[in-house]
Design a protein around this nucleic acid. Structure first.
Length: 489
RNA sequence: GGUCUCUUGGCCGAGUGGCUAGGCGCCGGUCUGCAAAACCGAAGACUCCGGUUCGAAUCCGGAAGAGACCUCCA
């Protein structure tokens, strides 16, 4: 595995060769969910994208520490005094303790991630568990002169920072434009400039989530937790920081500013951002209310869904697009993914049925090279999948006898499929719904009756059995010497 | 309004200055008592207008359309 891995670094806007700071170790930090709502299709994208990156790095022999946080502190809706903590709002709505809400949605997120076969991160830190560290970081930034205190709240002084450093380097934002463009906010802001951001907010009396500090009883600002938790577990400098593109500004921009303001060092070497999932060409998002939760997707219970889609279908759907492109949701696209995934797995299962020949008409090593090249080119999973489908053709051709595999090729093919489909892309074969013995015996009984009917050319009876079974959701395949069947999911 | 991105066949989606992406669908075929399933095969594309080039869907400029960020958001 000598080939170089190139990934697109948002901060340089170029594909760059990936070189870990301390090979073979690699540190990755990915922004996880804010757990105040059901995980939706949008959450699946970064989870799966970075899961594949993690898996591929491991495949390449790296030792990866993967940190993905849970944001459970809740942040201000906006910077005005009327701003309301999201988690608190939800808690009041549902008459629950904030941490009860957090727990519920964290569990839900974990359950969905497990279904999608997303690896658990090595560390999953919570913002609420790192208040002390966040306060320490505020102190450092304050001591270094890049923060100011007003009425018990502490704000990051972007103007002071930008005199010494470049604020906006990640998002391409220009401070002068920010002066001109920031929205007018209601009320008297405590901030010197509208683009300053909160490091610590004094809690209003009704604010439930609060912690004591030298500044006030309050809670940390939104960008702080990631700066703190990433450096705590990965070091002051680490390899990769990932997340959705919508986090580039202000979230990640502010993280950079905080790290540099505190330590003078740029913490992150490679910034990687996945694009959004759209629905009817529009971003799927909480605020637009056009999102589909993962549970709805898995169960088919949502107005826009014509049916349920399995977790692996969703995973396949996501990986069939490049992570930096927008991906448009539609039933048609999901159905295509479902069919395609089935075909891929079917071919994998059929590799064992190939009868080895003396010689091989297939060069299977090309396949591995293609897959690796594609992944090395900024994690191009759609090309990996396309390459695997070329192999699917070869496998089917071998079963028909129009191509030949020798013994080594069969073994190699199986290994490549294993490596890429399961280990790197992270699919798991989905065993069709659990079938118990009784059901199985009953179906076979009926199908045997049908076979008898066919033998005596009583097609009326055989077709009757078939149509009844099909209408019950049983898929029947007639074969040369009998039948096969399975439950339609 | 500012910054940025995108526009590929019926749908979803890769990609490269000249060489088939791939999946699904549709059509045709094999199989079948008929179907279904499976497999095979074919058709079909690069928003528009200029420019650079021997040659551009791919590079440059312009137009139109769409989207993202600028506010919590994966």
């Amino acid at each position: 595995m000598e080939q170089k891995l190139f990934i697109y670094n948002t901060i340089t806007r170029k594909k760059e060769e990936f070189t870990p700071l301390n090979p073979p170790f690699v540190g990755i930090y990915v922004c996880g969910p804010t757990v105040y709502g059901e995980p939706h299709l949008g959450h699946a994208r970064p989870a799966i994208t970075f899961d594949v990156l993690y898996r591929y790095l491991v495949y390449r022999g790296n030792k990866v520490r993967y940190v993905r946080n849970i944001t459970d502190v809740g942040h201000l809706e906006d910077d005005t005094e009327q701003g309301e903590d999201k988690i608190e709002k939800k808690a009041r709505l549902e008459q629950l303790e904030p941490m009860e809400v957090v727990q519920f949605y964290t569990d839900s997120y974990h359950a969905s991630m497990d279904k999608l076969n997303v690896h658990k991160p090595s560390i999953e830190p919570r913002a609420s568990g790192h208040i002390i560290e966040q306060l320490q970081l505020i102190d450092k930034i304050y001591e270094n002169g890049f923060a100011y205190e007003v009425n018990g709240s502490v704000y990051f002084d972007v103007e002071a920072y930008s005199k010494k450093y470049h604020y906006g380097k990640l998002s391409g934002r220009v401070l002068d434009d920010l002066y001109a463009n920031t929205r007018e906010l209601d009320g008297q802001s405590e901030k010197k400039n509208s683009f300053d951001f909160a490091l610590w907010k004094k809690a209003m009396p009704e604010h439930i989530m609060r912690w004591p500090s030298r500044w006030s009883e309050g809670f940390p600002g939104w960008h702080l937790e990631c700066s703190v938790m990433s450096t705590k577990y990965l070091g002051e400098e680490f390899d990769i920081h990932g997340g959705g593109m919508d986090l580039i500004f202000p979230h990640h921009e502010c993280e950079i500013a905080q790290s540099i303001a505190a330590s003078g060092k740029e913490a992150v070497h490679y910034w990687i951002h996945n694009n959004m999932i759209t629905i009817n060409g529009q971003k799927m998002g909480k605020s637009l209310g056009n999102f589909i939760t993962l549970n709805e997707l898995f169960s088919g219970k949502h107005a826009v869904l014509t049916k349920a889609y399995s977790p692996m279908t969703v995973r396949f759907f996501i990986l069939q697009a490049h992570y930096r492109s927008t991906l448009d949701f539609s039933n048609e696209a999901l159905n295509a993914a479902e069919k395609g995934f089935e075909r891929l797995i079917e071919a994998y299962n059929n590799i064992d049925k190939i009868k080895p020949s003396e010689t091989s008409t297939i060069n299977i090593n090309n396949l591995q090279t293609k897959c690796i090249d594609a992944l090395n080119d900024d994690l191009n999973t759609p090309v990996v999948i396309a390459s695997l489908f070329e192999a699917v053709k070869n496998i089917n051709a071998a079963l028909n006898g129009s191509e030949k595999f020798d013994k080594e090729s069969i073994i190699a093919c199986k290994k490549i499929f294993n490596d890429f489909i399961f280990n790197v892309l992270g699919f798991i074969p989905e065993t069709s719904s659990h079938v118990n013995k009784l059901l199985s015996d009953l179906v076979e009984l009926l199908l045997n009756e049908r076979m008898q009917a066919k033998k005596r050319k009583d097609f009326e009876a055989s077709d009757h059995i078939r149509s009844k079974l099909v209408s019950l959701g049983i898929e029947i395949k007639d074969t040369k010497d009998g039948f096969e069947w399975k439950l339609k999911n």
